[in-house]
Design a protein around this nucleic acid. Structure first.
Length: 424
RNA sequence: GGAGAGGUGGCAGAGCGGUCGAAUGCGGCGGCUUGCUAAGCCGUUGUGCGGGGUAACCUGCACCCAGGGUUCGAAUCCCUGCCUCUCCGCCA
């Protein structure tokens, strides 16, 4: 959410930000509603002031044994007027609030302007592996080795739900543990294990609602709960409605969670294998920092993600997302894409975003600066990493002519020392 | 699921329907004191939204879980919801 005062004073800037983000939002209406809200407030508060004063007089007179009927009658009328103003104020505030929730964060000047085609590759690492045979895609390899059972996954839940099996299940578990251990011990993140269902306030806090509500799985028959699309939601909301102590910052959290996405707008896209699924596992990194530190923390977050990719020996590139391609709440975002030899494509495995104070305003996360002023924090997060495409890349890049897969060195301790995965 | 109790400031904990934004204690912050020593004393200490002022600051309104209601006036009475605790039952 934006600061209303900022919007009021810079409507042109905000309109431009909406345009860059490719989001339609009624900025003028918001400004008008805000002005009306303050008008109402002014009148209402003057009346309340009067009523408070007269009520005190009434109390005094009653103590003195009088029955101040005239004043009471007068105040009843004032009360009616106040009530009417409150009704209007509530309506204006509600409309203003929902408009404000629909205005995106403004992009950082470093972000390339344009849609996805303006995304800029800013770094790359590693060599694409070469093979003396035609490399196969992971869905074939995993099926042959019995690591995944796509057919039965569909039977149990539907398309886009993965049934991991045997060494595949173990590899999934190994990756989760490896990611958590790596970020905790190597980068100093504090580990959490959050609920996978959250309430509406949490979804609003991180910005999934209202814009992406259709892409969320909902449990709203008896409960207004949502399956989380990422651990970012519960983890960032840990400090919702809190005022943090300056010594607490920066907070660096990491958490595993399953992630649930309806992928409503992506029907028929990337339907093969692990490329786009409705439920997947992910280890997420979340930072809560002082505003002046978020730029540096974003860069450090980026290197934390690069570290884990290098540890897994996965060739990757880093893309600075264009204004029109980054998410609603983000100001700046790096995508990490790993090379998958069998699919012959780069696969996005992490998004590393700086939300500046946008989520903090929505979720009302603040800190007391120098023990005095209360200010909004900045929030950031990155995947570290998303599992399915990571597994796809490991399987495809590590495949060998005999059909087995080489296990990256870093994962071996998590697989009982296994150096390869072959037919069981 | 059944029965009961309760939700007040960073924490603990008072609060007859009328100077209660709220006693008191702890904690925090500032200062004083420093020969009776892991101390004492004094002061201070919430948030949000408005208005005024370059600013320090002044000022109005609201906030005692949330939302309604009663009343001239509600932390205090009534209703609903949410949450917590205790006991019983059930259960991975």
């Amino acid at each position: 959410m934006l600061d209303m005062r900022f919007l009021k004073e810079n409507p042109e800037f905000v309109r431009e930000a909406c345009r860059l983000k490719g989001v339609r939002a009624d900025v003028d209406r918001a400004v008008a509603l805000d002005a009306r809200r303050r008008e109402i407030l002014l009148e209402k508060e003057a009346l309340q002031n009067g009523r408070n004063r007269v009520s005190r007089e009434i109390a005094g007179k009653r103590k003195a044994g009088e029955e101040p009927r005239a004043e009471q009658e007068e105040m009843r009328k004032v009360g009616d007027r106040i009530a009417a103003l409150e009704v209007e104020e509530r309506a204006v505030a509600a409309e203003l609030h929902s408009l404000m929730l629909a205005i995106p964060n403004h992009p950082d000047p470093d972000a390339p302007v344009g849609d996805g085609s303006a995304n800029r590759e800013i770094a790359s690492w590693g060599e694409k592996p070469s093979f003396p045979f035609e490399p196969r895609p992971h869905w074939e390899i995993c099926e042959t080795l019995g690591l995944l059972d796509f057919r039965r996954g569909v039977k149990i839940a539907g398309s886009g739900f993965i049934l991991y099996r045997g060494a595949g299940a173990r590899l999934e578990r190994a990756l989760i543990n490896f990611f958590l251990d790596f970020h905790v011990s190597r980068h100093g993140y504090a580990e959490w294990f959050p609920p996978f269902l959250v309430n509406r306030d949490s979804m609003i806090g991180t910005g999934q609602i209202p814009k992406l509500e259709e892409d969320m799985y909902r449990c709203d028959k008896d409960d207004d709960l949502f399956l989380i699309p990422t651990a970012e939601v519960p983890i960032t909301n840990i400090h919702r409605d809190e005022i943090l102590r300056p010594a607490d910052l920066p907070l660096r959290y990491c958490a595993y969670s399953a992630c649930f996405r309806r992928e409503a707008g992506a029907a028929g896209k990337d339907t093969r294998g692990l490329l786009r699924v409705h439920e997947f596992n992910k280890v997420e990194l979340v930072k809560v920092v002082r505003p002046e530190e978020s730029g540096d923390e974003h860069e450090r977050l980026r290197t934390d993600v690069e570290d884990v990719l290098r540890e897994l020996e996965l060739p990757y590139r880093v893309v600075n997302l264009a204004t029109g391609d980054m998410s609603f709440s983000a100001a700046k975002c790096y995508d990490f894409e790993v090379w998958a030899a069998g699919t012959g494509k780069y696969l996005e495995v992490s998004s590393c975003s700086n939300y500046t104070d946008y989520q903090a305003r929505r979720a009302n996360i603040r800190f007391r600066d120098d023990g005095k002023k209360v200010r909004f924090v900045h929030t950031l997060n990155a995947s570290g990493l998303a599992l399915p495409r990571t597994m796809a890349a490991i399987v495809e890049n590590g495949q060998r002519e005999d059909g087995s897969i080489a296990v990256p060195r870093a994962l071996r301790p998590y697989l009982g020392g296994m150096t390869e995965i072959g037919t069981a």
